[in-house]
Structures are given as structure tokens and as C-alpha cells.
Amino acid sequence: MTTAFRIHPDDNVATLLGDADDTVTVIGEGEIALNQAIALGHKVAMADIAQGDAVVKFGIPIGRAGAAIRRGDWVHLHNCASRFDERSGAFDVVTGAGKDMAYD
């Protein structure tokens, strides 16, 4: 089974240490059933996060939920707007490439 870790006790997300498609074990905290497949290094919601609420990692808000996020959801560009990069909503969810720029 794939594991994940919560960096800070106040975090509402955990980071996966491998690809997973059904369940992850958060080190020292138990299992979370995933609502979709999540890749290595990506975040899973540890609890429900209401639209507009802070997404917390490292003990600090890293963004705001752009939509309601359920426990077990993949937390990424499609449902979290970055507090650090105002262009985050224009990035491709899979590749991270900017969709608002033409690359020649």
C-alpha cells in the first residue's frame, strides 16, 4: 500500500510517496480512501475543505479551494488556486504547462 505524510499537524493535505489509486496510509495517522488516482508527490485532502477555505501545507495556507474538496480528493491546480502564483489557474493540470501562452 502507498504511504503519504502530513508535514505539519495543522495541514489539511498529505503528500503521497508513490502512485495510488484506491487507498493511502498516512504515516502515523491511518488510511484514507482515495476518490481518484493520485500520483507520487501530489496532495490528498485529509479532511473536507469548503470552497474558498485555505489549503494548508507546511502549516501555512498555500492556496484556496476553488471548489469543494472532499476527504480523499486529489488537491491540485484543478481545485486549488495558489496564493503564490496568480497564474496557477491557467496551468495544465497534468503537465503544469501554461495554457495562456503559446510555446513555439
Rank of each mutant, 00 (worst) to 15 (best):
M1L: 12
M1G: 13
M1I: 08
M1D: 10
T2I: 11
T2M: 09
A4S: 14
F5C: 05
F5E: 02
R6T: 13
I7S: 11
I7N: 04
P9H: 14
D10S: 15
D10E: 14
N12V: 07
N12Q: 08
N12E: 10
V13N: 06
V13L: 07
V13H: 00
T15I: 14
T15P: 02
T15R: 10
L17Y: 04
D19E: 10
A20T: 03
A20C: 08
A20S: 06
D21Q: 09
D21H: 07
V24F: 05
V24G: 00
V24K: 00
T25D: 11
V26P: 02
V26I: 11
I27D: 11
I27R: 12
G28Q: 07
G28T: 07
E29L: 11
E29Q: 14
G30M: 04
G30D: 09
E31L: 03
E31N: 12
I32S: 03
I32M: 04
L34N: 05
L34W: 06
Q36H: 09
A37L: 03
I38G: 00
I38W: 01
I38T: 02
A39N: 06
L40K: 11
H42C: 02
H42V: 02
K43A: 01
A45T: 08
M46G: 06
A47I: 01
D48N: 12
I49G: 00
G52I: 00
G52V: 00
D53M: 01
A54R: 02
A54Q: 05
A54S: 09
V55I: 11
V55S: 12
V56G: 07
K57E: 01
G59N: 05
I60M: 13
I60F: 06
I62Q: 11
I62Y: 14
G63V: 00
G63W: 08
R64K: 14
R64L: 09
R64H: 10
A67D: 14
A67I: 05
A67N: 12
R71F: 08
R71D: 00
D73A: 08
W74E: 03
H76K: 04
H76M: 00
H76N: 09
L77S: 11
L77P: 02
H78R: 06
N79K: 04
N79E: 06
C80V: 00
C80H: 07
C80N: 09
C80D: 03
A81V: 15
A81W: 12
A81Y: 14
A81Q: 13
S82R: 04
S82H: 06
R83Q: 10
R83L: 15
F84G: 03
D85K: 09
D85M: 10
E86C: 07
R87K: 15
R87D: 15
R87Q: 11
S88N: 03
S88M: 06
G89W: 03
G89Y: 02
G89F: 07
A90R: 13
F91Q: 09
D92F: 04
D92E: 04
D92L: 13
V93P: 08
V93N: 06
V93E: 11
V94L: 15
T95R: 13
T95H: 15
T95P: 13
T95E: 05
G96V: 01
A97M: 12
G98D: 12
K99T: 13
D100K: 10
D100Y: 14
D100E: 15
M101D: 05
M101C: 10
A102E: 11
Y103V: 15
Y103L: 15
D104H: 11
